[in-house]
Design a protein around this nucleic acid. Structure first.
Lengths: 350, 350
DNA sequence: AACGGCGATCGAATCGATTCGACGAGGAGC
DNA sequence: GCTCCTCGTCGAATCGATTCGATCGCCGTT
């Protein structure tokens, strides 16, 4: 009893050949109901729970597992509402195909490199990590694993699922400009994960690791021209609040009339900081975000933001991955975003 | 070029046998540095990225993948700070072993049942789902996949990682009792996922799906005896707030002097509702939670709660799983919890 | 010089299923 | 009644690496 029965054993017990037994388990119509029945009951007698997935995978050349790389540490990704919706969209599609989602920490050195070599992946989705030079990406490519990248770099042979970050922020900036704002500041997500905070200069900007962050800067500049941008160390409410205290705690005549946060999470921090400083939103300062995340805990306040289809992004990425696995050539995708005007933007103080 | 090179091809190219090539790749000390070098450069020439994980897995009998079942839908699990910390603890340990984490939606019918049969798992961790009668559990057991259950049922041959829910709530209840409270109410997490809300009666309670919820009821009753308990439909802030409005929006003489929420998330909802109703905490009503989650967005308020080591729970579960895979027999585990008294509990109004 | 020992390399079996082409029997058509 | 076709079943090759035990050669020893 130390060893589990194999398909061959079941076949022998049922008095059929292994091939027939295999057909029976795969539910092929080429096998007689009676025979199938015999095989199944033989399996039941022997306590055989079905073909070994490992062996089947080897033969088929597919493991039924798709890897998702989420930034740096999983914990951070889990805290990001957008990443979560993205993952949810991915699992939704993969689940319906009977494919499992393997979580991998991207943007990091040793562990994942080793993992990638040992874990059978049918395809990989780079979900929320910059990767201009990710070793994991190269390794997977040389292994021939199909890859889908969400908001990542344009790489040959890799399917890209993107959203129109630049256009979205441009629309948002125009909205603020139309309201009369002329002095705005940007609260930026990290350009790379080195824990740095502070105003972004040209040198720093050129070392940006994340494409979406850059695009969201550019969108604002399309309307306002050069604008001061303050980089946060991570995309978190507390980070946004801390940065906003720096930006807003200055005399009114030098204060920006609008703060454009690059994410709703950061914007929530700005709202918190503004309240703490006794500034009214939008009377004293307008606040805008990006993502269209669920911020119901803000109460009656509805954030002016750019809504992106996070879950749709996940579904699209997963579907592209499935198509790649099937041997297809899905096209790159650019998903639209829409401006949603809430209660946090208004005319600048006169 | 349509087909990738195999280890055998590399071996031939390097002028060694496949076995030696394999040894070279696995970094065995039994192979001469010179030979290894020759094999590696042959691999580089042929564009061979290393042994196929699928084939290696079959031979080894291990896939390097461990499955984590999280309740119902991943999206909900992702919203739960405890579940997230748990997953983070799991990934931390698995990552250090070079093992991947496969996310699976438990507590659901079709898709996972099918997935389980097709995906090679070395072990499974049931993370946050009740499963008195989960078909996935049975299926995995009959397949011989080692299983670790976090706060799940006691099943023969399954390792249990648990926390002392009952003792924790008991300590908390005693704290409130010592303060003078005599009329308390419980705000409970769902007993099962059928979307039901309302006071829990005996019939409902007997159909409970989740053990931790039951234990947290019992802990309170150990001190106060029978106590009204209001069940929420899901563990979310908004749910807690909605339920708290029902519990608190009554004349003061009929109102509970303390609300014991079964999670910090629910407790946050209670605080929200109390504020909306104009009730001061803890002067008008004391509020307590469970988990010790990060609620820094509450500001200065520090919730009285029972702190559980969520990440430690994850690490312990993952380590137990690794030990099972290695053929060991890790013991069941009961992790301690500690009462943390914050600013939300005080004497009852006189 | 012969022998023993040791370490590097090789052969061959194995992991467990899938699948393609072949084969045989039974039924339909002429 | 004979042939042809079809449907169900079987054999055997294959997926790609790992690993145990055997082999072969080299070096040190007496």
């Amino acid at each position: 009893m130390s060893t589990r029965p194999t398909l061959a054993a079941v076949a022998a017990h049922a008095g059929v050949s292994p091939s027939t037994a295999s057909l029976a388990f795969s539910g092929s119509p080429r096998v007689t109901p009676g025979t199938r029945e015999r095989v199944l009951s033989a399996a039941a007698e022997l306590g055989y729970a079905g073909p070994d997935p490992l062996a089947a995978s080897l033969r088929r050349g597919r493991s039924g597992v798709i890897g998702a790389f989420v930034g740096e540490r999983l914990l951070y990704a889990f805290r990001d509402p957008v990443a979560i919706q993205l993952l949810d969209g991915i699992t939704e599609v993969l689940g319906s195909h009977g494919v499992g989602l393997l979580l991998l920490a991207g943007d990091t050195g040793r562990p994942s490199t080793e993992q990638i070599g040992r874990i059978p992946l049918d395809a990989a989705i780079f979900a929320t990590c910059g990767l201009e030079d990710d070793p994991a990406l190269d390794q997977l490519r040389s292994r021939g694993v199909p890859i889908v990248v969400v908001e990542g770099p344009v790489v040959d042979g890799v399917v890209l699922v993107d959203i129109d970050d630049r256009r979205g922020t441009r629309d948002l900036a125009r909205h603020l400009h139309d309201l009369g704002h002329r002095r705005v500041e940007i609260l930026a997500m990290p350009l790379r994960l080195d824990g740095r905070r502070g105003f972004i200069d040209a040198a720093r900007r050129s070392r940006a690791h994340y494409r979406d962050v850059r695009h969201r800067l550019e969108g604002v500049e399309d309307v306002f021209g050069p604008v001061p941008a303050f980089e946060t160390a991570s995309n978190a409410v507390a980070e946004g609040a801390a940065a906003a205290r720096v930006l807003l705690d200055v005399p009114a005549h030098r204060r920006a009339t609008a703060v454009i946060a690059q994410s709703d999470v950061l914007a929530a921090g700005v709202l918190q900081a503004a309240a703490a400083l006794g500034l009214r939103v939008p009377e004293d300062v307008s606040v805008a975000g990006f993502d269209g995340a669920d911020l119901s805990w803000l109460g009656a306040t509805r954030l002016t933001t750019v809504v992106q289809p996070s879950d749709e992004k996940g579904r699209a990425a997963a579907e592209a991955a499935m198509e790649l696995v099937a041997g297809g050539h899905p096209p790159d995708l650019l998903l639209p975003v829409t401006l949603r005007i809430g209660t946090t933007s208004g005319p600048p103080p006169s």
